[in-house]
């Protein structure tokens, strides 16, 4: 792999849990993101998967400094975003953008598409009035919308079109990194395909580095170069998308992959399912050691002692399980 373009080291986001009306007492800490380390090459697409409450959205927002990190560094193209002051951070925001899940909530209902895109373009550069029309038109075409619609308001568009507008707005500042938080989850199946194609094309053409957050493994597998699997605030496995999907190493990944329904009755019938028991534990009170051990069918006594570190399994893959080699030998 080429040198790291985005380098995240030991990133932590902890939220205090407080009680009381006037005098607020701290009664605990939710470790939403708890020591995440990974790096991405320029133009790479990383799929970030995990179940609700695992901290994947918080991780995305922490990388973008929409939530201040408790600890750790986020280095994008040589600059540590976590160490910037308010002013510098605002100046740097053009470099990294977010695409949100709900295209109905992510656009200001009182602004036309033109205003929204022009505002984004002008947020960081001076653009002469004569040029702005041309740039907006180019941007609309890039995301597959006709510039004829620029004077319309968000509510006049369908969900898929709105998501295209949201993508255009993110591209307006010419970012190097985009984090897409469940960008297709709110869309219908036939529309999902359009947005996935669009994101893949943009990332290819513009050398965009993309973190694609989703709970839908088949979507993530399709678009990503690598997949990172999160469980309770930590990454438990990272590796090339096809390998993680076809030969998962971590017991949690195994369960996750086997739970994904395949729209093929033949393959569905032949599949061996790993059915997990119980629900993910509360992040307020995580189990000791490996937080997956209470639900893990391979758990041994030492699993509850120490938090397993992400270790290199083979050159391309890392996994956080002390029994990884044992389990995956056969």
């Amino acid at each position: 792999m080429s040198e790291a373009f985005l380098q995240i080291e030991n990133l932590k986001t902890h939220f205090p849990v407080e009680r009381g009306m006037i005098i607020r007492r701290r009664i605990g800490t939710v470790k939403a993101v708890d020591g995440v380390t990974f790096s991405l090459a320029r133009g790479e697409i990383l799929g970030l998967v995990g179940e609700s409450g695992c901290g994947k959205s918080t991780l995305g927002r922490t990388i973008l400094q929409l939530i201040p990190p408790t600890e750790g560094t986020v280095v994008l193209a040589g600059k540590n975003l976590a160490g910037l002051n308010k002013h510098d951070l605002r100046e740097s925001r053009a470099d990294f953008q977010m695409i949100f899940q709900d295209p109905y909530a992510s656009l200001n209902p009182r602004m036309t598409v033109f205003d929204a895109l022009a505002e984004a373009m002008r947020a960081h550069r001076k653009i002469p009035a004569a040029e702005i029309n041309e740039r907006v038109a180019a941007l609309m075409q890039k995301v597959g919308l006709s510039p004829r619609f620029v004077k319309k308001y968000p509510h006049e568009f369908s969900g898929g079109q709105r998501q295209r507008i949201a993508i255009a707005r993110a591209l307006a500042v010419e970012p190097k990194l985009i984090i897409a938080d469940e960008p297709v989850s709110a869309l219908d199946v036939s529309i999902q395909a359009q947005i996935i194609n669009l994101l893949a094309k943009l990332s290819r053409e513009m050398q965009l580095t993309l973190v694609f957050i989703s709970h839908d493994l088949s979507v993530v597998k399709h678009i990503s170069d690598r997949i990172a699997v999160m469980y309770l605030g930590r990454i438990v496995e990272i590796g090339p998308a096809a390998q993680v999907f076809e030969q998962p190493l971590h017991p949690y990944t195994k369960a996750l992959v086997s739970a994904v329904p395949i729209p093929d009755p033949e393959r569905e019938k032949q599949r061996q399912r790993v059915i997990l028991t119980g629900d993910p534990p509360s992040p307020l009170d995580p189990p000791s050691g490996c937080s997956f051990h209470p639900r893990c069918s391979y758990a041994a006594t030492e699993c509850s002692r120490a938090v397993p570190a992400l270790e290199i399994f083979d050159p391309a893959r890392t996994v956080a399980c002390i029994r990884a080699r044992e389990i995956n030998q056969a």
């Binding site: 219908d188 199946v189 036939s190 999902q192 395909a193 194609n197 094309k201 597998k221 399709h222 729209p263």
Partner: peptide, 24 residues
Amino acid sequence: RALQKSIPALQPKGVELYTIAGMP
């Protein structure tokens, strides 16, 4: 048929997904 061609789960990784033109 179009619906099935558009879901990533049934398609080889990375190929452009089939999209249904227009809107419902």
